[in-house]
């Protein structure tokens, strides 16, 4: 059975095979380098840089593209000459120099349009902190390790949050950090005051990231819960993980609601305090402590100003 699968695959791939593949390995753009650097060259045929270099017939995305000077280094005849001509190495290279080197080609991608102002760049996190051209765990994005491991390697508080009983399923593999975040920098948020958080990406170009999946909360609604639209989902929810149901910031919902709905100060849409509950609510009676039992459409409603339906 195994043999037949292999035969089938061989026939299929022979038919699909690259034109003139007999000399395939010979066309490797980095061939002279692999003589002395077999570990780096061994799996480089899987690398997007290599494939593009071969396809375009240039050295830009092969060894010389990143390791400037490698051609001269390779052509040197003696060991002394080779040692004298040292190609650019990314080990120990300053984060800005690394960024400049990578952006020579990769600045064209829209997702990196804000990379110079990103928190990672400001924190001197270089491209090579997360990406590994030669030792990538996956050829997609060339990440050095699984994405969640990479991110939580530094963001340990987030790792702690994903271990809570209620959490988004990142450890389980259903989600990735990049579903909500753009590690290369983002535009100013359209929620809260346009400030923090700085690496949360927009859903649909101008919405809070949560709405990418939770589309039923997106609205528009005739009666919007202003807290959701103005200050965002984080007002009530802890997005990574929580010990509280539905990722709420409090163990029970009524304390969360009451902390805003207390009529105090100049808060809220009307600027004179957020309305207290009605006098018909007797908080000593436990039945009134499950606010969302009646105020069902708490994210926004089309039929009731108080979100009752």
């Amino acid at each position: 059975m195994v043999l037949s699968i292999r035969s089938l695959l061989a026939v299929l791939l022979f038919w699909l095979g690259p034109a003139g593949s007999a000399n395939a390995q010979q066309s490797t753009a980095g061939l002279p380098c692999q003589t002395c650097h077999p570990a780096q060259a061994g799996t480089f045929h899987r690398n997007p840089h290599q494939k593009l270099a071969v396809a375009s017939g240039t050295q830009v995305t092969a060894c010389e593209g990143c390791h400037v000077g490698s051609v001269r280094h390779g052509l040197a005849k003696t060991i002394e000459e080779k040692r004298a001509i040292r190609p650019r190495s990314f080990q120990g290279l300053d984060s800005r120099a690394t960024l400049d080197a990578c952006l020579t080609c990769h600045s064209k991608d829209l997702s990196r349009a804000n990379i110079h102002r990103s928190e990672h760049t400001m924190a001197k996190v270089a491209c090579t902190s997360c990406h590994s051209v030669h030792g990538a765990a996956s050829s997609k994005s060339l990440l050095a390790r699984k994405q969640s491991e990479l991110c939580t390697g530094c963001h340990t508080q987030v790792r702690a949050q994903f271990n809570m009983p209620f959490k988004h399923r990142v450890n389980e593999g259903f989600m990735q950090c990049s579903d909500c975040h753009n590690p290369h920098g983002t535009n100013a948020p359209t929620w809260r005051m346009g400030g923090r958080p700085r690496l949360v990406d927009h859903a649909f170009g101008n919405e809070e990231a949560c709405l990418k999946c939770h589309t039923d909360k997106r609205g528009p609604f005739v009666f919007e819960h202003a807290a959701v639209r103005v200050d965002g989902c984080e007002t009530c929810h802890s997005p990574h993980g929580s010990t509280n149901p539905r990722l709420l910031r409090r163990p029970t919902v009524f304390t969360l609601c009451l902390e805003c709905h207390n009529g105090a100060g100049n808060f809220g849409r009307t600027g004179d305090g957020i309305s207290t509950q009605s006098a018909s609510h007797n908080m000593t009676d436990p039945r009134y402590r499950n606010c969302t039992t009646c105020h069902l459409r708490i994210h926004g409603s089309n039929s009731d100003q108080r979100f009752l339906r």
């Binding site: 095979g17 690259p18 593949s21 395939a24 066309s27 045929h45 997007p48 396809a55 996956s138 389980e172």
Partner: peptide, 28 residues
């Protein structure tokens, strides 16, 4: 992971397929 070795495949140069939890796991 299927890769053309010279970057000049007829129909494709790379196929990358990864799956997890297929056949009824809650996270697939």
């Amino acid at each position: 992971v299927v890769n053309s070795k010279n970057g000049q495949g007829r129909l494709f140069d790379e196929v990358l397929l990864q799956t997890q939890g297929l056949a009824n796991d809650p996270y697939q």
